[in-house]
Computed example of a mutant assay.
Amino acid sequence: MTERSAIVGAVDCGTNSIRLLVARPDESGRLIDLHREMRVVRLGEGVDATGRFLDEAIERTRVALADYVEVMISQGVQRVRMVATSATRDAANRDDFFAMTARLLGRVVPGAVAEVITGDEEARLSFRGAVGELDPAAGPFVVTDLGGGSTEVVLGDADGVRAAYSADIGCVRLTERALYSDPPTAEELVAATEFASERLAQAFAAVPVEQARTWVGVAGTMTTLSAIGMGLPEYDSDVIHLSRISLPDLNSVCERLIAMTRADRAELGPMHPGRVDVIGGGSLVTMQLAREFSGRAGITELVVSEHDILDGIALGRLPLLDP
């Protein structure tokens, strides 16, 4: 197998962002990044309320995916997989979205189409990507992938996933459902906390998180919280990857962000503009997770990984390569 034929492309399209990874395997089968990129397109804007994608949200996603396709073609990608998660499972007009993605992805690999994956598969892919570089002795791990529309809670170890659940709660969904003011009022925070607790309770009923020894958080909310907690002047994925933050410090960062105005959040160096209006909702969900993991498993810190579902998608393409 030549190095060029081993190049794979992975696209993860969620409620808030669309991300690309182009990579190849090294001799041990681990991924070597050739290109990694994220854009906030807010595909799930309004879906929770209307049940449909907005035309402008599909167009934002189309523009980003068209650019990703050019990158994949220039890098010589031979295998590609695009997955669409929470918002796409909920939208009545998802056929419009899939027709658009098929036209674009077909330029990379004829016949390639985006796939809607179940919450369970989303959780398993996130786990595979998140724990690949961690010491197995630190397990069992509980991995949380806090996205725009859903939060995956996954328990597993070096042998694989033991239990997983995808809860219908994320930073965009919670913000649109309960956090209207800038900053949120006390009444809004109470309602948002109750809603988040209710949705996450289903995950804790399905996943025995008390077995976990290490909490690993992935995706933009978690990485941004870590960057702010470390006081980084700007977002630096190399510094953020596998960073650790104590739960008291994590809660302090979350409380600070929730109380801020959007204008104040926008001034923070590591803050992506597309997260300014929803990071408060993500912080609130994070605080609920921290309280449960501390109380149920005695966990005292969060390990933040830059590797997540995107890496899991890419790793899953490697066995399909030509010999």
Rank of each mutant, 00 (worst) to 15 (best):
G231V: 10
L200V: 02
A205K: 00
G295Q: 11
L257T: 00
L225W: 12
A206K: 15
A212T: 06
G217Q: 05
D308Y: 09
I279Y: 08
H272F: 10
P248Y: 12
G312A: 06
M271S: 12
Y235W: 11
P270Y: 11
P183V: 13
G274Q: 13
V253M: 03
A266S: 14
S246N: 02
P248M: 11
A290R: 03
R244F: 04
G282D: 06
A203H: 11
G295P: 03
A186Y: 00
L189T: 01
G280A: 13
L284Y: 03
R291K: 14
V209G: 01
F293W: 08
E267A: 15
P208C: 04
I245C: 09
R199T: 06
E292T: 06
L189W: 02
A192T: 08
L200D: 10
I279A: 01
V253Q: 05
V207C: 00
A206F: 01
V216Q: 01
T185N: 11
H241F: 12
T300N: 09
V190L: 05
N251P: 07
E255I: 08
E292D: 01
P208M: 03
M287C: 14
V253N: 04
P208L: 02
P184M: 01
D308R: 04
M230Q: 15
I258M: 10
A297L: 08
L289R: 12
Q288K: 01
V218L: 13
A191E: 14
D236Y: 07
I309H: 02
S246Y: 05
Q202K: 13
F195T: 03
I228L: 14
A192L: 02
L310M: 10
L242S: 13
V218H: 08
E301V: 00
V278K: 10
T193M: 06
A205G: 14
V239L: 14
H241D: 15
M271H: 07
T223R: 11
V253H: 01
D311E: 14
T224W: 09
L257N: 07
A192D: 02
S246G: 04
V303P: 00
L242G: 06
G217W: 06
G312W: 03
L200T: 05
L268M: 04
G217I: 10
A192W: 09
H241T: 12
F293R: 09
M287L: 13
V190S: 07
G298W: 08
P248A: 11
M222E: 13
A290V: 06
S283I: 03
E210A: 07
L284G: 14
L225I: 05
G298P: 07
G220Q: 06
V278I: 15
G231T: 10
D249F: 00
E301R: 13
S237P: 11
M271P: 05
G220E: 06
M271K: 02
Y180H: 15
I228K: 08
R296N: 01
A297D: 02
T185V: 05
H307C: 10
T221P: 09
G298L: 08
V285K: 04
D249P: 07
I279R: 00
F204R: 01
A259T: 09
A263P: 04
P248V: 05
S305I: 08
D277Q: 13
S246T: 11
L289E: 06
V218P: 14
L250K: 03
A191W: 01
A297T: 08
R262K: 05
E198D: 15
L200I: 01
G274H: 15
A206L: 07
A227S: 12
Q202D: 00
T261N: 01
V209H: 02
G229I: 03
A212Y: 07
A227M: 05
V207A: 10
